[in-house]
């Protein structure tokens, strides 16, 4: 059994607004093993990013528990010790706004080294080593973010994240703002440094085809709730939740082999409800094709249908292991 690096138990994050309480993350539980990539998929507004932000401490959680390497984390980022911040890093979606435009690339990558007092005598050499590791030319140290393309900026953001030598990185849609050819480069770099540095990833995306190639296990989120968690390969062979089926059958694909993998066409219908007024019962029931009477009343619980394959749906209530 491999070592567990992160465990999230019944994580809750609500935001109070004038329109009511936004239930952004509602009792989400999962765990990430060492060296694993856990993928979180969902439509926008489903709470994927909020989950990551809450784990990283950007928002203090409303409820639930987060364990990192067996240690319980409480509160926001301000109350966390420096050693913990060194060990958990994040890469954001838009590299254009997450890099300081007035700092050179060298300064940007050097900052975490200064903060965590690493390589105090040879920081410059360390920065160059990191640039080499992600495959960027060394003369980038004197350039500024605006002089780089989107993909290169994202590689700089990744360099900054690995500079403090973390063991866990949360990747919040690292390639969704980029073209496919650049995306391939970023993903391959990420997978390579994961092996080299023995990193664990929480990988957030809305692109299922990408998830198929990156993640070892996948969780599907909808309106703040996890609907299904399964190993990636299993997930595409045998999706259980009606929402997962709809999601997979909506993916646009380009080859015939992929077409065969898709489940029978399920016509996507309805709109995603607002997270302020989550429908009663199962949150997905107004859009569900297999909706039954009980779905609008009883909220299903997460059950383990097969080994390591969890689903939150009333259809499988009898099949609990």
């Amino acid at each position: 059994m491999s070592e567990e690096i992160l465990r999230v138990k019944d994580l809750i994050k609500f935001f109070k607004t004038t329109q009511g309480v936004v239930r952004a993350v509602d009792r989400v539980s999962f765990s990430i093993q060492k060296g694993e990539t856990f993928g979180l998929v969902g439509e926008s507004g489903s709470g994927k990013s909020t989950t990551a932000f809450t784990i990283m401490g950007v928002y203090p959680p409303t409820g639930g528990e987060i364990f990192f390497k067996g240690v319980k984390l409480t509160g926001g980022v301000k109350s966390r010790p420096l050693s913990l911040k060194k060990d958990m890093q994040m890469v954001f979606q838009d590299p254009g706004s997450s890099l300081n435009p007035r700092h050179s690339i060298g300064q940007i990558i050097e900052l975490p080294l200064k903060v965590h007092k690493l390589y105090e005598n040879n920081r410059k050499e360390r920065v160059e080593e990191i640039l080499k590791m992600v495959g960027l030319p060394l003369d980038f140290t004197r350039r500024y973010p605006r002089q780089l393309g989107g993909g290169e900026k994202q590689l700089v953001a990744i360099s900054r994240a690995i500079a403090s030598e973390p063991s866990f990185i949360a990747l919040d849609e690292p390639t969704s703002a980029l073209d496919v050819s650049m995306q391939a480069k970023i993903i391959n770099t990420l997978l390579r440094i994961q092996k080299e540095l023995d990193l664990s990833y929480l990988f957030i995306t809305h692109n299922l085809s990408l998830m198929r190639n990156v993640a070892t296990r996948v969780g599907i989120m909808y309106l703040g709730k996890l609907l299904e968690v399964a190993p990636t390969s299993e997930f595409f062979i045998k999706p259980l939740h009606p929402y997962t089926k709809m999601l997979i059958s909506s993916i646009p694909v380009i080859t015939k082999e992929e077409e065969k993998l898709k489940p029978e066409r399920i016509i996507s219908r309805g709109e995603i409800p607002s997270p302020v007024n989550v429908p009663p019962g199962c949150a997905f029931h107004p859009r569900c094709v297999e909706c039954q009477e009980m779905c609008s009343k009883t909220e299903p619980e997460m059950i383990e249908v097969e080994e390591n394959h969890y689903v939150r749906c009333n259809l499988y209530i009898d099949q609990s292991k």
Partner: peptide, 13 residues
């Protein structure tokens, strides 16, 4: 370079 549902990694850009 388009990631495929069939898996098998993403070829170099």
């Amino acid at each position: 370079t388009v990631p495929k549902l069939t898996g098998g990694g993403i070829p170099e850009a």
